Lab assay of single mutants.
Amino acid sequence: CFKERTRSLLREWYLQDPYPNPSKKRELAQATGLTPTQVGNWFKNRRQRDR
Rank of each mutant, 00 (worst) to 15 (best):
Leu9Arg: 08
Cys1Ile: 15
Trp42Leu: 00
Leu10Asn: 04
Pro36Gln: 10
Lys3Tyr: 10
Lys44Ala: 09
Ser23Asp: 15
Glu27Ile: 06
Phe2Arg: 09
Leu10Lys: 01
Trp42Asn: 09
Arg11Asp: 10
Glu4Asn: 08
Arg47Trp: 04
Thr37Met: 13
Arg26Ala: 15
Phe43Tyr: 04
Lys44Phe: 07
Arg7Trp: 12
Arg7Pro: 04
Trp13Cys: 12
Leu34Arg: 02
Arg47Gly: 01
Arg11Met: 14
Lys3Asp: 13
Arg46Phe: 05
Arg46Ala: 09
Glu12Trp: 11
Lys25Asp: 03
Trp13Phe: 06
Lys24Phe: 04
Leu15Thr: 11
Arg5Phe: 08
Pro36Ser: 09
Ala31Glu: 13
Gly33Ser: 05
Arg46His: 09
Thr37Gly: 12
Leu28Asn: 00
Arg51Asn: 09
Ser23Trp: 03
Trp13Lys: 07
Leu10Cys: 01
Arg5Cys: 08
Ser8Leu: 14
Lys24Leu: 08
Leu28Ile: 11
Trp13Met: 14
Gln16Glu: 09
Gln30Ser: 13
Arg5Ser: 15
Pro22Arg: 08
Leu28Tyr: 14
Leu34Glu: 03
Arg26Lys: 14
Tyr14Asn: 03
Ser23Val: 12
Tyr14Ile: 03
Gly40Arg: 14
Lys3Ile: 08
Thr35Phe: 03
Pro20Thr: 02
Gly33Lys: 06
Trp42Gln: 02
Ala31Thr: 11
Thr35Asn: 10
Asp50Tyr: 05
Gly40Asp: 10
Thr6Trp: 07
Trp42Arg: 00
Leu9Pro: 04
Val39Phe: 02
Gln48Ile: 08
Asp50Gln: 09
Lys25Pro: 02
Gly33His: 06
Leu34Gln: 05
Gly33Asp: 07
Pro36Arg: 09
Arg49Thr: 11
Phe2Gln: 11
Asn45Tyr: 04
Arg5Asp: 11
Pro18Val: 04
Thr6Asn: 07
Phe43Glu: 01
Gly33Pro: 03
Arg47Val: 05
Asp50Val: 04
Glu27Pro: 03
Arg51Glu: 11
Pro36Ala: 10
Phe2Asp: 15
Gln30Asn: 15
Leu10Val: 00
Asn21Tyr: 01
Arg47Pro: 06
Gln30Trp: 12
Asn45His: 10
Thr32Val: 10
Arg26Ser: 13
Thr6Glu: 09
Pro18Ala: 10
Glu4Val: 04
Pro20Asp: 02
Lys3Ser: 12
Pro36Asp: 05
Leu9Ser: 03
Glu12Asp: 12
Gly33Asn: 14
Asn41Cys: 07
Leu10Ser: 04
Lys44Pro: 00
Leu15Trp: 06
Gln30Lys: 06
Arg46Cys: 05
Lys25Ala: 08
Gln16Met: 15
Gln16Ile: 15
Arg47Cys: 03
Tyr19Gln: 07
Tyr14Asp: 00
Leu34Ala: 04
Gln16Phe: 12
Asn41Thr: 10
Thr37His: 12
Pro22Val: 14
Lys3Asn: 15
Gln48Gly: 09
Lys24Ile: 13
Gln48Lys: 15
Thr32Ser: 07
Cys1Gly: 08
Cys1Phe: 15
Asn45Ile: 07
Gly40Leu: 03
Ala31Lys: 12
Pro18Phe: 04
Asn21Ile: 07
Ala31Gly: 04
Tyr19Ser: 06
Gly33Val: 03
Gln38Arg: 03
Ala29Asp: 00
Lys25His: 05
Arg49Ile: 10
Arg51Leu: 09
Arg26Gln: 15
Asn45Arg: 13
Glu4Pro: 12
Lys44Met: 06
Val39Asn: 00
Ala31Ile: 11
Arg46Gln: 13
Thr35Pro: 01
Phe2Lys: 14
Glu12Gln: 08
Val39Ile: 10
Glu27Asn: 00
Glu12Val: 05
Thr32Leu: 07
Pro20Met: 04
Gln16Thr: 10
Phe2Glu: 14
Asp50Asn: 03
Arg46Tyr: 06
Asn45Ser: 09
Phe2Ser: 12
Leu10Gly: 00
Arg47Thr: 02
Arg49His: 08
Glu12Ala: 10
Arg49Asp: 13
Ala29Gln: 01
Arg26Leu: 15
Gly33Met: 03
Arg11Ser: 13
Glu27Lys: 15
Val39Cys: 00
Asn45Pro: 00
Trp42Gly: 02
Leu34Ile: 07
Ala31Arg: 09
Lys24Met: 10
Thr35Gln: 10
Trp13Ile: 11
Leu34Ser: 05
Gly40Gln: 10
Ala31Cys: 09
Asp17Val: 01
Phe2Asn: 15
Asn21Ala: 11
Phe43Pro: 00
Arg5Leu: 09
Lys24Glu: 08
Gln38Phe: 04
Leu28Ser: 02
Pro22Tyr: 12
Phe2Leu: 13
Thr37Glu: 15
Lys24Asp: 02
Ser23Leu: 08
Tyr19Ile: 06
Trp13Thr: 13
Phe2Tyr: 14
Thr35Ala: 01
Asn21Pro: 14
Leu28Glu: 00
Thr6Met: 12
Lys44Leu: 07
Gln38Cys: 07
Lys3His: 04
Lys25Gln: 12
Lys3Gly: 11
Glu27Trp: 04
Arg7Thr: 07
Glu4Trp: 04
Leu34Tyr: 03
Glu12Met: 09
Asn45Phe: 07
Gln16Arg: 13
Pro22Trp: 15
Gly33Glu: 01
Pro22Asn: 10
Arg5Thr: 11
Pro20Gln: 02
Pro18Ser: 07
Ser8Glu: 15
Leu15Cys: 15
Asp50Ser: 06
Asn41Gly: 06
Thr35Lys: 03
Arg49Lys: 14
Gly33Arg: 05
Lys25Gly: 05
